Amino acid sequence: MKSKYITLLWVFLCFSSSQHLLANESDLVLKNQQGELFELSSMVGKKPVYLKFWATWCKPCMQQMPHFQHAYEQYGDTIDMIAINIDLNDDPGAVAAVNKRFNLTMPIMTDHTGKVAQHYQFIGTPFHVLLDKTGKVIFQGHEADKALDNTLRLLSHDGMVAKPHLLDEGNKQAATALIIPEYGLKAVLYTATWCDWYLADTRPSMAKNCVAAQKQMNTLAKQGIDSEARISQLWTDQAAVDEYIEKFKVIHPVYIDHGNDLFIDNKVSSVPTLVIYKNGRIVNRISDFSSPVNL
């Protein structure tokens, strides 16, 4: 089962309208390590841009960091580069540790709202996005391979590439609407199909927390509380959701948050997070499941 999921980390990618994505939108804001806000539009459209999305607990991301630092040293004068932490189950201390470990010298920023990742329709780390000097997306990928290196080399010459290298387009799905009742309680667990096993080595406490969260959600559902789970779209398809349901014997509805709109709207930056609604409004957020949830 795990080998199937690992394959998904690299190849299960569905994007739409990638060729027309431009990053010069006013709401695309990142946060640097000093906590200052940075508008991506101030960089795009002047010279080529390389955006690398990553997480500290992502094993392939760590394997690629030397390549990224080398690329910055080689092309940093002609291509603007940013290491963008996706801010999911991460913290400044962990980001700083990676910075120190690999002696990174490029700008390191955090996608604290999730909107930059959403704009580029990213579905898993590591994720490379290259823009030409006009701001057009001309490369998307996950591997630090020859295709990435060739595109960087071409961009460094005159800032343009004749033939884009984009991931498959189409098959974009709409998320099932979240219905919050006007009266009464509603429990929504924001989680991921992979957090119990993928984080087992790098973040074991988080992995255990993911297991405990789902077990407690089953308990809430048995108590008659209106309950459901929203699954992050990262590295997930319906087959992964089906296996998740079977593994944890889930007895409540489970939906993929295609586009991660609900994660963004509800400011969920860690999994698992249980959001409690009462009479149509959020009244509580729970992220520690070491003790039973009592509603």
Rank of each mutant, 00 (worst) to 15 (best):
L40W: 07
N171E: 14
E243M: 13
Y72E: 07
F139W: 05
G135A: 09
I108F: 11
Q69F: 02
D145C: 03
Q223T: 00
G114C: 10
F289W: 09
S26E: 13
V254C: 10
K249C: 04
S290A: 14
D77R: 12
W235N: 15
V211P: 03
P60D: 02
L21W: 06
Y5L: 14
E143I: 00
T105D: 09
H67I: 00
I123D: 07
V188L: 11
V116T: 15
H112A: 09
Y277H: 09
E243C: 03
N209P: 11
L8R: 09
D91T: 01
V98D: 05
P204D: 08
E73K: 14
Y75E: 12
K146M: 07
T219Q: 12
R281D: 12
D265G: 03
I138Y: 04
V29N: 08
M217Q: 12
S269Q: 00
I79E: 12
K4I: 13
M62A: 15
Q34H: 14
G184A: 12
A207F: 09
D261S: 13
T113E: 12
W57V: 01
P126G: 02
L9A: 08
Q19P: 03
F127A: 14
H70A: 15
I264N: 14
D226W: 04
A83L: 02
Y198L: 11
S269G: 03
E243K: 10
E228P: 02
K163R: 07
T273Q: 11
E182T: 12
I179F: 10
S205K: 15
Q118C: 12
E228Y: 01
G114W: 01
A23Q: 09
Y75I: 10
T193H: 10
G141K: 08
H258N: 14
T110K: 08
I108E: 14
R203N: 06
D196V: 03
S42W: 02
T125K: 04
P66D: 02
L22M: 15
L166R: 03
N150I: 03
W194K: 07
H20P: 01
N24R: 10
K278A: 11
D158M: 13
G93H: 09
K47H: 05
S287G: 11
G141R: 04
G224W: 08
T236A: 14
N150G: 13
Q64I: 00
K4V: 15
A144M: 02
Q173D: 06
V241H: 11
H142A: 02
N260P: 05
K4F: 15
W194T: 04
V250R: 07
N89D: 08
V275R: 00
Q69L: 12
M206W: 01
T151D: 04
G184E: 07
I231G: 02
N209Q: 15
E73V: 03
N32F: 05
I79A: 13
V188A: 09
F122P: 01
A147P: 03
Q33W: 08
V271P: 06
H67S: 01
Y5C: 05
F15E: 09
D87W: 02
F263V: 04
F68A: 14
P92F: 01
C61M: 07
M109G: 14
A144E: 00
D145V: 01
A94T: 10
D27Q: 09
K115T: 10
C61W: 00
Q121Y: 04
N218V: 08
L30E: 10
